[in-house]
Amino acid sequence: MSTPAVSLEVQLGRLRLANPIMVASGTFGYAREMAGLVDLARLGGILPKTITQEPRQGNPPPRTVETTAGLLNSIGLDNDGIEAFIERLLPYLAGLGPAIVVSIAGRTADEFTQMAARLDGLPGVAALELNISCPNVSGGVDFGVNPTSCCGVVEGVRRACSLPVLAKLTPNVTDIVSVAKAAADGGADAISLINTCLGMAVDWRHRKPRLGNVLGGLSGPAIKPIALRAVYQVARAVDIPLIGIGGIASIDDTMEFLVAGATAVQIGTASFYRPGVSIEILDALPDALTQLGATRVADVVGTLDVETK
């Protein structure tokens, strides 16, 4: 049931969204795939699959394997490169309505800034998300595990373009708070938490890894507690908005992330097994906010009570 008195708009630094329900990069193709299953225009934001400077073939199959309440993947940033994206995919995305947040991954800091400069000012690009956390390619994950390199990449991208910048961080670090602080210091508009958790699956009878690339990133309901923990810890340490990602598959999951400190969320793996889930969550959001006496999303963000028993 819709509650007209509730405003769903959210502000992520310089990026304004009509509502806080986004779909995560790498779990929604390039959106065109979902046109028959999801009312794309209603989403708060769409993150197409990560693009790289050059085309990438991706990793050999099997690229995914299901584990208990989760999905392990080693896709390997299979994509046709930034120029193919701009020429063939962006025009469609630009006409959809929601904020298009383009996820980019560079092998070097320079490549990140070159891609940011190339996308700057193109119609339809609302913001960038820096994928400095993909566990499946060498050269990407390194930026997100070190505060200094993370800060440097974000700074470089900020200088190279006028777009709002989201930094997507990996949970595969000793101290995610220090990396998040570095992203904020570098000028990120918001921080996306979290990318997948590095994991593996083994077929002991054949003494073989189940993934073609041996190691992969775990997503789905299994990692939700890890993502919630990251949002909670980072929310207490930085002043910029956070985007919760990790196992979100229902309105309850969404509200947990908002209360823990996220201003918006991204729906990821759940779209694989419930294609229309993002709109189901959006439909349920006004009522859930009303249950907490909120009239706007910001009223509940980071309101977790850890003091009183």
Partner: peptide, 16 residues
């Protein structure tokens, strides 16, 4: 017949 996670083209698992 390849292993699929979504069946709808959004996960890029089922490649041949």
């Amino acid at each position: 017949e390849t292993p699929m996670a979504c069946g709808i083209g959004i996960c890029f698992s089922c490649v041949a």
